[in-house]
Design a protein around this nucleic acid. Structure first.
Length: 784
RNA sequence: GGGCUCGUGGUCCAGUGGUUAAGACGCUACCUUGACAUGGUAGAUAUCCCCGGUUCGAAUCCGGGCGGGCCCACCA
């Protein structure tokens, strides 16, 4: 028997059982078509947040649906383990350690975080294959990442070169853009006097006059009439250096004087211009972030130098104006020091020569929703320079190369996995000893081969059967990184084939107030907190109701409360059906029109749910399940058949029992991908003996049964009359269960339908006359 | 500034050319009817952002505007 209430104890029972049985473990390739999911490996922060919950629920729905559709689903759990946040946390906890030991501590810490996250995932009923996990910090993963880089190196897609990178001089480290914050501050915009080709005065505006020693050009907007005459000529800076004047579309005519100086490298725009116009590169900061090559200002920090140089220009009467302006500067998020660009040797992957190929391959993939591809196109078109793949960090995949400090020659490592501290010596052709590269890879280098990892590339037998992967689920906000780099590396760089058939996009979960969830706003909702109050199946329904629109959506307590009520409804209805089926022998006598009506409704729901699941429209599937089950099945059908279940007519009762059984059985199968726990429990308590399968997970997805379109229409008319009578009872304040007399002017309803109406609405007698109802006096009952 | 996306009862959201615009939450009235009060029956509440166009017909398609959101670029 089903328990009195559906509880989390039941959910936990099944979670344990599924894990014990290895229900979701991949058993190897077989005759079934494979369905490999390129699951997002979460960064191992230790916390699973609502965004994860939503996104992971999506592809868990798909995985469960595909299993029921007969696919051999391969759905391994990956973990994105390496990165700065981990280094920071471990450093805080353990202090500074030698490199090898430090990495060991990072690994330990990561393992703990994974345990925490896995626990939440299990409690949400996610069904990945825990026996086929991958961790980006494993040496096996390192080996494959390194191999992939070698293959790209052989195609000249990976190279070492000099390039400006974000640099924090306080921490003495290269930074990724994500390690920076924006800081708004007030500063002075200085109008400084330059000399034109004829010795005439020209005024440029700058906030960083101390960089003038690195000035390599002066620019204006091509449509700016004031400066058009300067094209191709040279001007003299306030320091007496001659530089070319160039037109450029990115110059703002309205800002300052419309004339600006380009230095290497004041900000990112300077780098863009330096590359676009092939300008010479002048290093003005030394290794400690102090000025160099300036003569009088060497050894000063930029800020000090700025004050001094302004003083100098003021004395020379070259400062014409100073105005206050606000600017946004990038600062290192940890120490809040403004970052500079520093020239250094880094490793690159050649994006700029492959953008058209990437865009073309992206078109072979189905994007759900379609607009997702726009993000990728935009990015491909706007990338200014190649992808810097090296990072000066410790906890990461080592770049598997050597370089020659003398001639700059590079070579692949001979053995993989490669670790610089264990690297054998290598001589350069120039005679010098080569150095093993000590930088590690950008995290996206690791995660841009996940479809290959999932497939088992390059050595697992039959990996080509799983590549392309069937599905890549991911957030919209990382199309520019994860999707883009994966197509570039796994697709263009390594296999020449698209990485997946379908990309399924999800949006973010906002706080109920519509703002971003953030610790500082105190509006964070976590799945672990919700699980204290709501069953996992309710959270999963919330996720389904949030749709697959790739749209940000506020978290809604109403939705999850509704989901919980719905589960309660399903549970109670199942209890009723179970009780109603007592003594049922499995026979199926002729069905009534009402039975055929609900079976036809079931057929329609099956079609709609199937279509919705095929198109990843989980909200449509969930809504149909709600509407059908709550309204058609519970509110109407169950009420319509009660008199038959409790009545004396055995044939009629068996027909109703047969129908109840069929409908509930099909329904829980349709519900199983979204709410697997409740479906599994009901399956085991009520239906298992029939099929002998030990889990609902692999039951075949329902197909529509025999069609009853005619009966469906006929019953529609009957329901209108029932509704009219209920309405009359309500307005006369008569209880719905009370027995009545009905007066009708006549009806088109067939006799047997009218008979149903009598039974359903407890009519004692139907009389000819204007429509009205009358309560039957209960004298007889009182007497008894 | 560029790209994308959205704008539907008090709130959230479905519907993407065709009869009285679906549902949820909230609200009102009634109903302790033998699965469920985490329930049931009924009810009120919508200039479908604005303007113009296409069409026999537009919430739905097109153009323009206004207003949110996201991403990117952000001023030397």
């Amino acid at each position: 028997m089903l328990d009195k209430r559906f509880s989390q104890a039941i959910e936990e029972k099944w979670q344990t059982e599924w894990e014990k049985r290895g229900t979701y473990t991949f058993r190897g390739l077989d005759e079934r078509p494979t369905y490999a999911i390129d699951t997002p490996p979460p960064f191992t922060s230790g916390e699973l947040h609502m965004g994860h919950t939503l996104s992971y629920a999506y592809f868990d729905f798909v995985a469960r649906y595909k299993r029921m559709r007969g696919f051999n689903v391969y759905y391994p759990q990956g973990w994105d383990t390496q990165g700065f946040p981990t280094e920071t946390k471990v450093e805080k906890k353990c202090g500074r350690l030698p490199c090898g030991l430090f990495r060991e501590k990072c690994r330990e810490w990561t393992a703990q975080m994974i345990d925490k996250m896995k626990d939440t995932m299990v409690r949400l009923g996610f069904s990945p294959d825990w026996e086929h996990q991958y961790l980006t910090m494993d040496s096996e993963y390192h080996r494959k990442v390194q191999l992939s880089l070698h293959l790209m190196y052989d195609k000249d897609m990976v190279y070492r070169s000099e390039h400006p990178v974000f640099w924090c001089y306080k921490c003495n480290s290269a930074l990724a853009k994500t390690d920076t914050d924006d800081l708004e501050r007030e500063t002075l915009l200085n109008h400084i006097l330059f000399k034109g080709p004829e010795g005439e005065g020209l005024v440029i505006a700058t906030t960083r006059p101390e960089l003038m020693y690195a000035c390599v050009a002066v620019m204006y907007h091509p449509d700016d009439e004031r400066y058009k005459n300067l094209e191709g000529k040279e001007v003299t800076t306030a320091l007496g250096k001659k530089v070319p004047v160039l037109p450029d579309r990115d110059v703002d005519k309205e800002y300052g004087t419309g004339l600006l100086m380009v230095c290497t490298f004041g900000d990112k725009q300077d780098i863009v211009w330096a590359y676009r116009h092939k300008l010479p590169i002048v290093s003005i900061l030394d290794g400690r972030g102090k000025l160099t090559g300036t003569g009088g200002f060497d050894g000063l920090k930029p800020k000090e130098a700025r004050e001094k140089i302004i003083e100098k220009f003021r004395e020379e009467e070259k400062i014409l104006k100073q105005e206050k302006t606000t600017q946004v500067v990038k600062v290192h998020d940890r120490c809040k020091t403004p970052v500079e660009y520093a020239l250094s040797k880094q490793w690159f992957a050649d994006i700029t020569n492959h953008r058209e190929e990437i865009k073309k391959m992206a078109r072979e993939v189905r994007w759900v929703p379609e607009f997702g591809i726009n993000y990728l196109d935009d990015w491909a078109d706007s990338v200014e320079w190649d992808w810097v793949i090296s990072r000066q960090r410790h906890f990461g995949t080592p770049l598997p190369f050597y370089y020659c400090p003398k001639c700059g020659e590079t070579e692949k490592a001979d053995e993989l996995p490669f670790y610089p501290e264990k690297a054998p010596e290598k001589a350069c052709s120039c005679g010098e000893k080569m150095k093993p590269e000590e930088s590690v890879c950008d995290c996206w280098v690791d995660s841009s081969i996940t479809p290959l990892m999932v497939a088992g590339w390059p050595d697992r037998e039959g990996w080509e059967r799983m590549y392309p992967n069937a599905l890549r689920p991911q957030g919209v906000e990382i199309i520019r990184t994860w999707a883009f780099y994966t197509i570039y590396r796994s697709g263009i760089g390594i296999t020449g084939k698209k990485p997946w058939d379908v990309v399924l996009l999800n949006g973010n979960v906002l706080a109920p107030d519509g703002r971003k969830m953030s610790k500082s706003l105190g509006n964070v909702i976590s799945p672990t907190d919700l699980l204290k109050q709501y069953p996992a199946d309710a959270l999963r329904q919330w996720a389904a109701m949030s749709g697959a629109m790739a749209k940000d959506r506020p978290f809604s307590y109403e939705d999850i409360k509704f989901a919980k009520s719905f589960l309660n409804k399903v549970w109670n209805a199942a209890k009723f059906v179970q009780k109603s089926l007592e003594g049922y022998d499995g026979s199926s006598p002729p069905l009534s029109d009402i039975d055929k009506w609900i079976l036809e409704s079931m057929n329609k729901a099956t079609e709609e749910c199937t279509d919705a699941m095929e198109n990843y429209e989980f909200h449509r599937c969930a809504r149909k399940l709600h509407d059908f089950f709550w309204h058609d099945f519970c509110d109407d059908y169950l009420e319509y058949v009660k008199y038959r279940i409790y009545g004396e007519d055995e044939e009629s009762r068996k027909a109703a029992q047969h129908t109840l059984h069929e409908v509930l059985y099909s329904f829980i199968k349709l519900l199983a991908p979204i709410s697997p726990h409740i479906s599994e429990e009901i399956y085991h308590e009520m239906f298992k003996s029939r099929e002998g399968e030990d889990t609902i997970n692999f039951m075949p997805w329902p197909e529509p049964g025999p069609r009853f379109a005619k009966e469906h229409r006929k019953v529609g008319q009957m329901r209108e009359l029932v509704s009219k009578i209920r309405q009359a009872k309500a307005s006369e304040k008569i209880s719905q269960g009370a027995e009545i007399l009905l007066y009708l002017p006549g009806t088109e309803l067939p006799e047997e339908m009218l008979e149903e109406v009598k039974n359903i609405t407890r009519i004692k007698e139907i009389n000819e006359g204007e429509f009205k109802i009358e309560k039957v006096e209960e004298e007889k009952e009182k007497e008894a």
